[in-house]
Amino acid sequence: MDTDIMAEAAGRKVRQPLGRPQTSEELAFYARTHIFLTICALLLCPPFGLLGLLFAHKTKEANQYSDWEDAYLNSTRTIWMDVLGILVGLGIIYYYVLFM
């Protein structure tokens, strides 16, 4: 119990297991992880792709614990990091093709 208090004081969210299987309604409410965009971002711009991968993992974890607010927040962060990584990667490629 003392570790839960310390984790909350440190700012980390402590999730408790559900102790039951998720219902079909809960499974339908899952936030998207955008894994295809994450892979594209990893190939084009690894720093942003790794951030997208981190947020996709957090989304998947929050979905498993039915923490919908955190899941949708991390899903939004995932897509922003992925799109930013893809745009930066394409911008670097265009720069080298056009000006080098």
Rank of each mutant, 00 (worst) to 15 (best):
M1R: 10
M1P: 10
T3M: 12
T3C: 04
T3D: 10
T3S: 11
D4R: 15
D4Q: 14
I5T: 14
A7D: 08
A7K: 07
E8Q: 12
A9F: 15
A10L: 12
A10S: 14
A10V: 02
A10G: 12
A10H: 10
A10E: 11
R12K: 11
R12P: 00
R12L: 15
K13L: 14
R15D: 08
R15K: 08
Q16K: 15
Q16C: 07
P17L: 03
P17W: 05
L18V: 06
G19I: 06
P21H: 09
P21F: 15
P21K: 13
P21S: 10
Q22V: 05
Q22H: 07
Q22A: 12
S24C: 06
S24Q: 15
S24Y: 13
S24M: 12
E26I: 03
L27W: 07
A28W: 07
A28R: 13
A28T: 04
F29Q: 11
F29N: 15
F29G: 08
Y30D: 13
Y30M: 10
T33R: 03
T33E: 10
T33H: 01
H34V: 05
H34W: 14
F36K: 14
F36T: 13
F36E: 13
L37V: 01
L37K: 08
L37W: 05
L37H: 05
L37Y: 08
T38Y: 02
T38N: 06
C40P: 00
A41G: 06
A41F: 03
A41L: 04
L42W: 06
L42S: 12
L43H: 02
L43A: 15
L44Q: 03
L44W: 06
L44G: 03
C45V: 02
C45N: 12
P46D: 11
P46Q: 12
P46H: 07
P46Y: 09
P47M: 04
F48K: 02
G49Y: 02
G49H: 05
G49R: 01
G49Q: 01
L50Q: 02
L51A: 13
L51I: 14
G52W: 00
L54F: 14
L54G: 05
F55P: 00
F55T: 08
A56T: 10
H57D: 05
K58M: 07
K58P: 00
T59R: 05
T59E: 07
T59N: 08
T59F: 06
K60Y: 13
E61T: 13
E61C: 09
A62Y: 03
A62E: 04
A62M: 06
N63G: 06
Y65Q: 05
Y65P: 01
S66R: 05
S66V: 10
S66G: 01
S66M: 10
D67P: 04
D67L: 09
D67H: 12
W68L: 10
E69D: 11
E69I: 05
A71D: 03
A71Y: 01
A71K: 01
Y72I: 02
Y72V: 01
Y72H: 15
L73S: 04
S75I: 01
S75R: 03
S75D: 08
T76K: 13
T76P: 00
I79W: 04
W80G: 03
V83H: 01
L84V: 12
L84C: 11
G85N: 02
G85F: 00
G85H: 03
G85M: 00
I86P: 00
I86E: 03
I86Q: 02
L87T: 07
L87S: 09
V88S: 04
I92R: 08
I93L: 14
Y96L: 09
V97L: 12
V97E: 09
V97N: 09
F99Q: 08
M100S: 07
